[in-house]
Design a protein around this nucleic acid. Structure first.
Length: 204
DNA sequence: AGTGCGATTGACT
DNA sequence: GTCAATCGCACTA
């Protein structure tokens, strides 16, 4: 079996993650999400994120800490995983200092490793549809509530590696799928990347 | 205890 | 383009 760190990446250091939620969302573009399972390693390069900063009415931490959103209040670099629409898991990275509730939603990846396993997990062939969208990438990488609270700065079942390539040009837009706080430019994406989700108009 | 509503997706007109 | 599926949680009573 391939070890999680065999491809030469190392886990991001917490100290290199910006404290600020919006800065973190921008900086995560180009990093690599790695999922190590007993069956093999699945990974993808982050091409799209959304920031849910402190005081954001659309953020899950807006009404304070609960049993469900506890992970959002961990120090930056921990996983917050929740179920949306009763069907799809969403992977977030906690941001800010310990005790402060905020995070970054990972909206899309460009698949790197374990594509065949992802195709089985998603029951589709199309490479482009494998991890384009937050629910899709969670299904492809077998991410669910069991990974809630995991430290993404340590090599383990789910972690984030420093990208090896140069950081791409990053575009900004409004966020997708919200009914409140829709105005701010809190969505970030790798410009021109075919694995970015959302309508063309938001991806210029 | 009951109600309403999503940080979405896939199937279908 | 439209629309239903489906579950946890916040909110009301």
């Amino acid at each position: 079996m391939l070890a999680a760190d065999d491809h030469g990446y190392e886990a991001v250091r917490r100290s290199e993650l910006p404290l600020d939620t919006v800065e973190l969302a921008r900086r995560l573009i180009g990093k690599v999400v790695v999922r190590a399972t007993s069956e093999g390693v699945l990974s993808g390069r982050v091409v799209e994120t959304e920031a849910y900063p402190v005081g954001d009415a659309a953020g899950h931490a807006y009404r304070g800490e609960t049993s469900g959103n506890r992970a959002l209040f961990l120090c930056r670099g921990h996983a917050y995983v929740y179920l949306a629409y009763g069907a799809h898991y969403m992977l977030n990275v906690s941001s800010e200092a310990a005790g402060v509730g905020a995070g970054v939603l990972i909206r899309a990846l460009a698949p790197l490793q374990g594509m065949e396993m992802m195709q089985r997990n998603r029951r589709i062939e199309s490479l482009r549809d494998l991890t384009r969208g937050p629910g899709r990438l969670a299904a492809a990488l077998e991410i669910d509530r069991r990974l809630d609270g995991v430290d993404l700065c340590r090599v383990g079942p789910l972690w984030i590696a420093r990208g090896c390539r140069e950081a791409p040009e990053v575009g900004a837009s409004t966020r997708i799928g919200l009914s409140k706080a829709t105005d701010r430019l809190l969505r970030f994406y790798a410009r021109g990347d075919r694995f970015v989700s959302g309508p063309k108009a938001l991806n210029r």
